[in-house]
Design a protein around this nucleic acid. Structure first.
Length: 305
DNA sequence: GGCCAGGTGTACC
DNA sequence: GGTACACATGGC
């Protein structure tokens, strides 16, 4: 059955294709994906979201929670620093949103993400679901889809089988983290109740999870909108947009990000990530050398008017 | 064929 | 506190 919901200030395509999630597939003007054990097809028209479920008992509330349709995006955007880079990034895609994902799926997916392109992460996640997930009900004529395999399923899977999903060296991390999550009982639920810094430390105890992946999980699954993942794209964005003609160290970028972007820094990060990835591209941002010093004395980064 | 990809762990200084 | 390198695989 299909239901419609009011929806404003929301760019569904950009949101589902912005590197937060890896299993939503465009089909014509719609997007198809799985939430838990439920298949959905989503599309939007002026002011409305349309959602088709495979059964009459689809979890609509969960879908809306996942999409974050209740979030006041205007208030969030107005908290951003009023500087040219942020204005450009927001103008490029004003309806970009953060999703509220399942922590395990998000954690496992980002363990696979290290030094992989997003298209390859999608492929790995898809293979994992096909081989170790459960079939999910779909409408007649729709290709079969599968749920994301739970930690207990991956914990008992041999590393060789994980590697066959093209995980490479990440297979060992995924298996080891799955076992830790299973042994830890409700650890992923308990993390939800911790302050952000304590939650980050807990996540970073898991094999294959460093600062960046921990921040992705905090931001994309636990709703910690002050978490600010700094990956290669965000490094490029910060260097080019805020430190042109300089060679800031990674540490400098982290310190800058921690203070510059305000209480919704993670949201600002997603706008910068999407902006640099879709509009500016890779070639505009040569990798900064960590050895060479700046040829000129440092000047303050770009300040608001 | 070389470089790069939503990094992390380890060894070393 | 840092820096260098290995780790798999595929796209461009």
């Amino acid at each position: 059955m299909t239901r419609s919901f009011p929806l404003t200030n929301y760019d569904l395509a950009a949101t589902l294709d912005s590197g937060q999630v890896f299993r939503w597939i465009p089909r014509g003007a719609a997007w198809e994906g799985v939430l838990g054990d439920h298949w959905f097809r989503l599309w939007q028209t002026a002011g409305q979201l349309h959602a088709e479920g495979a059964t009459g008992s689809s979890p609509w509330e969960r879908l809306l929670h996942f999409l974050g349709t209740d979030e006041d995006l205007t208030a969030i955007r107005s908290s951003f620093p009023d500087d040219p880079p942020m204005r450009d990034a927001v103008a490029a895609c004003p309806g970009l949103r953060l999703l509220r994902q399942d922590p395990w799926e998000c954690l496992a997916s980002f363990i696979l993400s290290s030094t992989k392109q997003i298209v390859q992460i999608r492929q790995c996640v898809s293979l994992l679901c096909e081989r170790f997930g459960q079939p999910v009900a779909v409408p007649p004529g729709t290709a079969p889809v599968y749920s994301f395999p739970p930690a207990c399923r991956l914990a008992e899977t041999e590393e060789r089988q994980l590697r066959e999903c093209k995980l490479g060296f990440r297979a060992r991390y995924l298996g080891a983290t799955a076992r830790r999550v299973v042994q830890g009982g409700p650890m992923l639920e308990e993390i939800a109740g911790l302050p952000t810094e304590a939650a980050r430390r807990e996540l970073m105890e898991l094999p294959g999870v460093g600062r960046k992946i921990a921040d992705c999980v905090l931001l994309f699954a636990y709703g910690r909108q002050d978490a600010f993942p700094v990956d290669v794209w965000v490094q490029r964005a910060l260097r080019q947009l805020y430190f042109p003609n300089r060679r800031p160290s990674f540490r400098t970028l982290e310190r800058f990000a921690a203070t510059h972007f305000g209480p919704f820094a993670g949201y600002a990060q997603q706008y910068l990530f999407h902006y640099v990835r879709t509009r500016l591209g890779r070639t505009a941002f040569p990798k900064a050398s960590s050895r060479r010093r700046s040829p000129r004395p440092p000047s303050p980064p770009h300040e608001p008017h």
